[in-house]
């Protein structure tokens, strides 16, 4: 198995408490990796560090064997990584279409100043919006969407980003079954396109269905790692969940 993302002895502490405690994990390439663990086990903190959202205190992060030392969030594009947020963070007072377009257009400010989104950008954005069933809502403000639509729009942004590694932080939480199905399809599609996906999720049925690899965390530490069925039958994993 080839690994696209690795951490070695990664540590993040908040006021003396280790939220992530000397964590060494490997994310395999072109697969869906599940990331599970009880609440407060450090999953979101890990996602935050991997996406440069908050710096790590010590340890190392490797992207395809290249170490990323001080992570600047905007370098995510260079490293080909993107993410969604557990608490949806959209550009609320912008239209649904603009929420996608802003991800598609030029990043360098000077060029962006002389760029207006082209027909190509527009077509890409509209294709994505059709995929997530928000095409009809494209001129509405993101703030006016329902909770499920907001979750979908975040996923639309990730699709627009076209990154190699995608970190989903609880994309299914609180959604209706039909929306869950839709997102499952999108995630599987991403895998087929050769993307590597990390999926934070509580629902074991979804994990079993989607994931090729599973990482279980508890109290900031690695509890178990491997094939989902095998990992989920391990005794320590069961205990961690029953003990919750």
């Amino acid at each position: 198995m080839k690994y696209i993302l690795e951490t070695k002895n990664l540590v993040k502490s908040f006021g003396g408490v280790h939220a992530v405690d000397h964590l060494s994990i490997n994310i395999p390439e072109k697969m869906i990796t599940g990331l599970v663990g009880p609440n407060g086990s450090g999953k979101t903190t890990l996602i935050n560090m991997l996406s440069g959202f908050s710096p790590h205190n010590s340890g190392e992060i490797f992207f395809s064997d290249v170490e990323r030392k001080k992570i600047m969030p905007w370098e995510n594009q260079v490293y080909g990584i993107t993410r969604t947020f557990q608490q949806v963070r959209l550009f609320d007072q912008m239209s649904v279409l603009d929420n996608i377009l802003v991800i598609l257009t030029e990043r360098a400010p000077f060029y962006a100043l002389f760029e207006r989104h082209s027909g190509y950008h527009l077509k890409c954005a509209e294709d994505i919006l059709k995929k997530i069933d928000l095409y009809e809502k494209r001129f509405h403000n993101a703030a006016d969407l329902s909770y499920g639509q907001r979750k979908l729009l975040e996923i639309g942004r990730v699709l627009a980003m076209d990154a190699n590694i995608i970190l989903f932080d609880e994309p299914f939480a609180g959604l209706f079954p039909e929306v869950i199905k839709k997102i499952e399809k999108i995630v599987l599609n991403l895998k087929q396109e050769g993307k590597s996906v990390v999926l934070v999720e509580h629902n074991m049925a979804i994990i079993r269905k989607l994931c090729d690899h599973l990482i279980v965390m508890d109290a900031g530490k690695l509890l178990a790692e491997g094939h989902p069925e095998k990992v989920l039958s391990e005794k320590i994993v069961l205990e961690a969940y029953l003990g919750e």
């Binding site: 996406s51 440069g52 959202f53 969030p73 905007w74 370098e75 995510n76 594009q77 260079v78 993107t82 993410r83 947020f85 963070r89 959209l90 550009f91 609320d92 007072q93 912008m94 603009d98 377009l101 802003v102 991800i103 257009t105 030029e106 990043r107 400010p109 962006a112 100043l113 002389f114 760029e115 207006r116 989104h117 942004r157 980003m161």
Partner: peptide, 21 residues
Amino acid sequence: SSFGRALNAIREDEDALQIFG
């Protein structure tokens, strides 16, 4: 321009925008 759209996104959520490069 695309620049103006990015400015609006900064107003809405600067940290989230950074994540996208």
